[in-house]
Design a protein around this nucleic acid. Structure first.
Length: 923
RNA sequence: GGGCGCGUAGCUCAGUGGUAGAGCACUGUGUUCACACCGCAGGGGUCGCAAGUUCAAUCCUUGCCGCGCCCACCA
């Protein structure tokens, strides 16, 4: 046994213990026969470094994992990293930037190789950081979403989905990210409000036709009337006019009835070849918004796309992958004439979308914003602009690229989310998936019920290449391998789809693919479905929902029984942390300064369900102090010969103080077990914190000080062991260190704390001991308060006079004389009939105890002290009396409530009376 | 526009249909042989506002005020 230093220094012991646990295989002991328990860690990006959000997420998972392990379960915490397609490709491209190179300077193979090299070099950073937090995950089976087995699973899933008709290829409008030149999913788009404009233009009617435009109010009264030769169109995106296929008005809109079916002219481009488009009706336009007439640009607007599809309106792609106006294909004149013919009924072909280029030569190659201002200027020059308004508009941004997303008509792979989601909804309804806190289920359902097909193809190089091959005629063959595809295709030349899968497609398989799926491995059988998933609500849709979908489709089971959602970690002012605001808190810095235990405890203690965490460093400091307090308690016990407990069960005890602390341990354990069952991390932390500091250190240790008889040695050892066990999931390092520092009879412990047994509540609370110690504690507390308020010097020993000679009280005070002398500076008690003159008094459990103070007493101070107590007693007494006087209360309230009020009233009244007597005695 | 959440002590947060709790901060005090990263004692809240339900509301209902988040295709 080495003597503990006075102050707890976390740094050294953290490293030592973590290495030991990992090397000794203690994160995953062989427990093939025990109840399995499983959780998977959300795989952090290989590019990533640990941020405070991870710290919270990991802490909660580790608390549960360590708890399960201590319960003797076969606890498995799956760990690994995510290849993070876009994010990683971005990082490597940025590196190339520094070398003044581009991705396209390399072949795809060379580039991907480079990413692997980079991953090998720096991919371990995040896993080292997870270790510093103390994460007790199963490193021996660490996975990567692009490792061989996992990739095979990904391929197989895609093939299966395709065969079941749940993955399909389609040309639709997608969110196109011009920076990455890739499609992204709906979820990866951030809609933000920005300042923009709304332009109102005249679309002249074909052939110089005119009509009477009449504006009426709700009662049909004519407000305004004029002859017009145009229709007024409002748009926030003039550059897309070039691709208009029609103008739509509401079928009930009387104003435009005369011209429905007529053609109007798009007022841009060389006059000779201006396009004419029909005026059609659709219920989409809102007659009360703008002019009530909407231009329909199916290839560049999500709403218009729907209208165009419904009405068979042609769509024309105007931009290239970088969102510049197209500079390919036939001339404007050629394209325009063909488009005109189509508008007038000539059959269109599907290829027209891309084959025609309706961008006038003057705009070709321009950036979309440049094109916009040119279009506006040109229209204004012709005097066809009615007005321009400033307007806040919602604009879609790529969540990673931060550039404005362009809706584009392209061929992509989709997953039929609408079908996949059905069993998930069912599972949640039937409680096969339990969402905690429950309040999130509404959001969950709302999203699931309104889900759209999920675009899963990405035009990137880094990721799982889509297992689809095309022949020269565009036929597609989806197969596990090229050989297989070739067999299906019958020896035609094939080329593989260039695209990769959305990263979330693969991470959605994490709960089962990490366990060996599609093989029916023993691990999979035992550890799937997982017991619980812990995740931030920010990835509820990205990851959680997709895991549920994939799990249900491929394993016919929900991937986990419980879905626990925690909040975000914010700074001390409630601001969202972000690098750009510079208010991020580095968890590693906090670990350096206060220790991993303190940070973990803080995060657990602040995790109350359904609320974000405002992280205040003072709080971390406070829990560092808590660790030190525990450390010093251990030192003290050690000095007094307390070692490891010789038994797991509570030792036999006669002394009330020992019987009492055993009962308190049991009560604390019950609180903790309840909190674990409810996933209330804040309650867990509160229970163990208050027991350790407020009960064990402040009272038990003080009460037994100087009296370490064999029984007390045994009970103290046991109780302290229970603290270490119960605290270990939260503060693994300091508890493991202290566990090792408390050997018995010079012998080391037979096993580490990390694999010690969670206590079973075998002992029961002893009510008599609880009452006895409760009373003793009350005497000490009252006496100390009295001394403090009367400023009685510590040097003065007081003699308690028990008024009325209450035998039980006298017995108690006598039995605990040494303790009372030490903790409250009291002498042996004496029985007294009446309160001696010049006494200060306290009341404990209905017994008045007087302390004659000779001349030392400050009568005024005592008077004011008593008066304050009397006032408080009166207030309570009178309030209760008033309630009891109300017949409505006594008749209608629950009998228990009435009884309690009566009892409280009697007690407070008696106390008031005693205090009044005491005050009177003072004269 | 729809949905969710929050407003309780100076700060950060728990909480309950029967007149409120914790940590930190604050005040006083203490060098008692574990710990000043400590001990002891103490001050501090009409539980956002209003109405309703109830014998009783901080807790339930409704409305309002303030704050935050998520979702959404109004050109």
């Amino acid at each position: 046994m080495s003597e503990l230093p006075k102050t707890f220094e976390p740094g050294a012991i953290e490293q030592r213990w973590y290495a030991h646990w990992e090397q000794a295989g203690l994160f995953r002991p062989e427990r093939g026969q025990e109840t399995p328990w499983t959780i998977v860690m959300p795989p952090p990006n290989v590019t990533g470094s640990l941020h405070i959000g991870h710290a919270l997420d990991i802490t909660l998972q580790d608390v549960l994992t360590r708890h399960a392990r201590m319960q003797g379960k076969d606890a498995l915490w799956v760990v690994g990293t995510d290849h993070a397609g876009i994010a990683t490709q971005m990082v490597v491209e940025r590196q190339l930037d520094l070398e003044q190179k581009k991705r396209t300077d390399f072949t795809r193979e060379q580039f991907v190789e480079r990413v692997w090299a980079w991953k090998a070099e720096s991919g371990g950073a995040i896993t080292g950081q997870l270790r510093r937090l103390g994460a007790s995950c199963d490193w021996a089976n660490e996975r990567f979403t692009m490792d061989e087995g996992f990739s095979r699973a990904v391929t197989q899933v895609f093939v299966e989905l395709y065969k079941r008709g749940l993955a399909f290829r389609d040309k639709r409008l997608v969110n196109w990210d011009p920076k990455f030149q890739s499609a992204i999913s709906d979820l990866e788009v951030d809609n933000r409000e920005v300042s923009g404009h709304m332009w109102h233009f005249k679309y002249p009617l074909a052939g110089g036709r005119t009509y009477t435009y009449v504006e009426r109010d709700d009662d049909g009264k004519v407000l305004f009337e004029e002859e017009r030769d145009y229709i007024s169109i409002a748009t926030t995106r003039p550059e897309t006019m070039l691709g208009d296929g029609a103008v739509a008005v509401h079928p009930d809109d009387e104003r435009y009835r005369p011209i429905v079916g007529c053609f109007c002219e798009i007022p841009v481009g060389p006059k000779a070849h201006r396009r004419l488009i029909p005026i059609i009706t659709d219920t989409y336009p809102d007659p009360h918004f703008g002019s009530g007439a909407v231009k329909i640009t199916g290839a560049h607007d999500l709403n218009d796309y729907g209208v165009a599809q419904r009405n068979g309106i042609p769509m024309y792609r105007l931009m290239d992958g970088r969102a510049r106006m197209r500079d390919d294909g036939p001339s404007y004149a050629q394209s325009s004439e063909r488009a005109k013919a189509i508008a007038h009924g000539e059959p269109a072909s599907a290829a027209d979308v891309d084959a025609l280029n309706l961008v006038p030569e003057a705009y070709r190659g321009l950036d979309r914003y440049e094109a916009r201002s040119r279009v506006v200027a040109d229209i204004a020059a012709e005097d066809l602009m009615i007005k321009v308004e400033d307007k806040q508009v919602m604009q879609p941004f790529g969540d990673r690229s931060n550039v404005v997303i362009e809706p584009m008509l392209t061929d992509q792979w989709y997953v039929d989310a609408g079908t996949l989601v059905k069993p998930v909804i069912e599972a949640t309804r039937s409680d096969a998936i339990k969402i905690v806190p429950e309040t999130w289920s509404k959001t969950w359902f709302n999203w699931l019920e309104n889900i759209q097909p999920w675009c899963v193809s990405r035009q990137l190089w880094w990721g799982h290449r889509i297992p689809a091959w095309f022949d020269d005629n565009g036929n597609v063959f989806v197969a596990q391998s090229e050989d297989e595809a070739r067999r299906e295709a019958g020896d035609r030349p094939l080329r593989q789809d260039e695209d990769v899968l959305d990263t979330w497609f693969s991470s959605a398989l994490w709960p089962f693919a990490t366990l060996g799926w599609p093989e029916a491995t023993e691990e999979l059988k035992r550890h799937y479905p997982n017991d619980v998933l812990i995740s931030g609500f920010d990835i509820l849709f990205f990851w959680d929902a997709r895991m549920a979908m994939m799990g249900e489709e491929l394993t016919r089971q929900a991937p986990w029984k419980t879905l626990y959602l925690h909040g975000l970690v914010r700074d001390a002012h409630g601001q969202k942390m972000s690098k750009s605001k510079g208010n991020t808190v580095d968890p590693l810095g906090l670990i350096d300064q206060y220790g991993a235990d303190a940070l973990r405890f803080t995060l657990a203690a602040m995790e109350s369900q359904g609320r974000d965490i405002k992280l205040d460093e003072k709080r971390v400091e406070g829990y560092r102090n808590f660790a030190t307090k525990l450390w010093n308690a251990a030192r003290f016990l050690q000095m007094n010969g307390v070692g490891a407990s010789t038994s797991i069960a509570a030792p036999p005890a006669e002394l009330p103080v020992n019987r009492w602390i055993i009962g308190e341990v049991v009560a604390t354990l019950a609180r903790l077990d309840k909190a674990f069952a409810d996933l209330r991390f804040d309650d867990m932390a509160d229970a163990i914190y208050h027991f350790t500091w407020g009960t064990f250190c402040d009272w038990y240790v003080e009460l037994v000080k100087g009296a370490f008889d064999p029984e007390t040695l045994a009970v103290a050892a046991w109780a302290f062991d229970q603290i270490l066990v119960m605290l270990h999931p939260f503060m693994p390092f300091v508890t493991e260190e202290l566990w090792g520092a408390m050997p018995r009879d010079g012998e080391q412990r037979p096993y580490e704390l990390i694999v010690a047994r969670w206590p079973a509540p075998e002992a029961t609370a002893d009510q008599a001991a609880k009452a006895e110690i409760g009373s003793l504690v009350a005497v000490i507390a009252e006496a100390r308060a009295m001394r403090a308020e009367l400023t009685i010097p510590w040097s003065a020993t007081l003699t308690p006079h028990v008024i009325g000679g209450d035998a039980a009280m006298i017995g108690r005070l006598t039995a605990n004389a040494a303790t009372l002398a030490r903790m409250a500076k009291l002498a042996l008690p004496v029985a007294a009939g009446a309160i001696p003159d010049g006494s200060a008094q306290i009341a404990v459990e209905g017994v008045t105890i007087a302390f004659p103070l000779d001349d030392a007493i400050d009568l005024d101070a005592e008077r004011s002290r008593l008066s304050k107590s009397i006032a408080a007693a009166h207030k309570d007494r009178d309030g209760l009396a008033a309630r009891l006087a109300n017949p409505a209360f006594t008749e209608r309230a629950k009998p228990e409530a009435v009884d309690k009020a009566r009892a409280d009233h009697a007690e407070r009244a008696a106390e008031a009376e005693r205090l009044e007597t005491a005050l009177a005695r003072l004269g």
